[in-house]
Nucleic acid binder design. Structure first.
Length: 299
DNA sequence: TCCTACGCCAGGAAAGAAGC
DNA sequence: GCTTCTTTCCTGGCGTAGGA
């Protein structure tokens, strides 16, 4: 694993750590904080070690240590201080950095160790809300800026999904509350980002609700079949990439006409695609929620 | 055309020193 | 204790040059 050769541009480092490229250059110039390799044409080229160091430096800096003081520390001292701070302070920030390193480095062991240390003092729900959700937001940005590869995004996504599935499995023995409605969780066609939906499934199960998880890219027509099995249905969906902005209104109208004829049937929605969606004439029985926490709270 | 490096300048925020 | 001044740190903007 240590032999993996990864190089980062200054822009990559900016995206990964949140520290402006200009600031990174200034830190290098004034404090000799990083010593990147240079191309023949003088372009900076950072190693994985530089990336790790900068994550640690930004963590200390965000926790109030002055950059001039951090620069005086040896690399081992920086790492030690980060661990000390993580133990008594916000472990989530440290964990997010560790998960990023695990993702970049395809390091499953680091992922599992970081997760285990978080689990020692946190519930799974807390870990998801405080660590995985911010991490997934960051990953979304890193993906948009091509800082990470599809393989890296899939690698970390699958590991997170495994943890959610594992926790859902632990709930299998719980019987659903009697006479409660059935929550049908699905993603619209072409939509494949199912981590958020999986976690909602976990939350509903943990509260004792009966759920049917259909997963990604479900044709609307096929949802009708559920009415042959269940009377009281509440659909739940998560729009991350699809439907596209211009198609959302039409999708919801079609959904309403096809599946929400019964007054008691509802559709609960979430997802980045809906962040800026405003439609005052939202079909009846459709509710857009700003966060998973809000959705679960409103049940 | 876009990105990167570099230098310079200006300004905001915070901390510390000095004076009243 | 409060105000003022100075210093330090950080950031953003701008312009120029050169490479991808």
């Amino acid at each position: 694993m240590n032999n993996i050769k990864i190089n980062f541009s200054i822009k990559d480092l900016e995206n990964l750590t949140g520290i402006k490229a200009h600031t990174i250059r200034i830190w290098e110039k004034r404090y000799n904080l990083l010593t990147p390799n240079r191309s023949d044409t003088n372009i900076r080229n950072y190693s994985l070690e530089s990336f790790k160091k900068l994550l640690n430096v930004s963590y200390l800096n965000n926790n109030g240590l002055k950059i001039s003081r951090i620069a005086e520390l040896k690399e081992e001292e920086i790492a030690t201080k980060v661990k000390e701070l993580a133990l008594k302070g916000k472990a989530e920030d440290y964990a997010i950095n560790a998960f990023k390193i695990a993702m970049i480095n395809f390091d499953q062991v680091l992922f599992y160790n970081t997760y285990s240390s978080l689990l020692a003092t946190n519930s799974f729900s807390n870990i998801f809300y405080n660590t995985f959700l911010p991490l997934l937001n960051d990953i979304g940005l890193l993906w948009q800026t091509s800082t990470i590869t599809p393989a890296q995004e899939h690698f970390i996504s699958v590991l997170i999904k495994q943890k959610i599935l594992l926790n859902i499995e632990k709930l299998q023995s719980l019987n659903p509350q009697p006479n409660t409605k059935t929550f049908v969780l699905f993603l619209p066609q072409h939509e494949v980002h199912d981590i958020g939906l999986l976690f909602i499934n976990y939350q509903l199960r943990s509260k004792g609700y009966h759920t049917i998880f259909l997963g990604e890219s479900v044709p609307m027509e096929s949802l009708k079949e559920l009415f042959n099995f269940f009377n009281d249905i509440c659909f739940v969906s998560y729009f991350t990439v699809y439907p596209e902005e211009e198609n959302i209104t039409a999708y919801l109208k079609d959904f309403s006409n096809l599946l929400l004829n019964n007054n008691s049937t509802k559709l609960l929605l979430l997802g980045q695609k809906l962040n800026n969606y405003s439609n005052n004439e939202l079909p009846k029985n459709i509710t857009i929620h700003k966060s998973i926490e809000n959705l679960v709270k409103d049940l």
